[in-house]
Amino acid sequence: MKIKKILFPTKFRELAFNSLESLMELKETGLKEVVLTYIIPREEVGFVPFGGYMKDEEERLREQARIRFEDWQQSLSKHGIDSTIRIEVGNPIPQLYRIAEEEKVDLIIAGRKKRTALEKVYVGSHTLDLIRRSKVPVLISKYMVRFEWEGELITRVNDHIFTKPLFATDWSKPSENALKLVSSFKGLTDKVMVTHIIGVKISKNLDKSELRRIERESKERLDNYCDILKKAGLKAEPHLFSGRSSAEIIRVAREHKATMIVMGTTGKDRLREFWLGSVSHRVAEMSELPVLLVP
């Protein structure tokens, strides 16, 4: 599993280009092409009440996007990376999903949600929708974020995000896929923190001996994962914790100065997510770090 082609959709918000540039280091691991995409939301140009469709406005937005993308393309070609431009009108998420399939991309980049005064959640409903449905990994890139840490307001720039990823596993099939993807990060990564959280739901009804058994098994599995990564030429260290999974992952990532979080995701739909919860979606929403979710 290697990242050769990425889909980079943008709404041209501030720092979008910086976010794209920060991904250029993926060239080390085989990145060859970027599909620069801008979806003009249909509501922006169509269904003018009792009017119709603003063709001129569509043309203007297309031209504006094309000119910006062409500038970006120059930068990409300096890095030796090919690029194509896709500008379309429609409903953004289904369109992105369709383009990702057509272009056969290996990774979709999703931006953080629009900056607000009090930042608590970094992922909007559209991105969550994309994560739920995507068949390829999605990286929620949060180039610049502000967050509160021990009473202080901190502004953080997330570049060189592949340097020290925290790979959180729940031993599921998507986690195994995530492991394969992380294995391809040789040359980018100093160290991978392979982490497992024994969730409250599992630990609260168990006696001590059973808990010890799970702890032992988890450590063995973590070691196995680390061995796989080491074989792929990466440094890796195991970390085992217990508690509320999403909160623990965010805490550990902060304390160990991780540069990104990598997780598997089962793509629960809204209804199942409502009842069962989704650790990966919660981490994506709440963590100030970029989150790479692998289906």
């Binding site: 140009v45 269904f47 009017g51 469709y53």
Partner: peptide
């Protein structure tokens, strides 16, 4: 006219988006 009834403008919008000159 396009403003006589709500669906008129919706049809116009969809047709123009699909490339039919209206």
């Amino acid at each position: 006219s396009y403003i006589g009834n709500a669906p008129n403008f919706m049809v116009r919008s969809i047709a123009e988006e699909a490339g039919t000159p209206m």
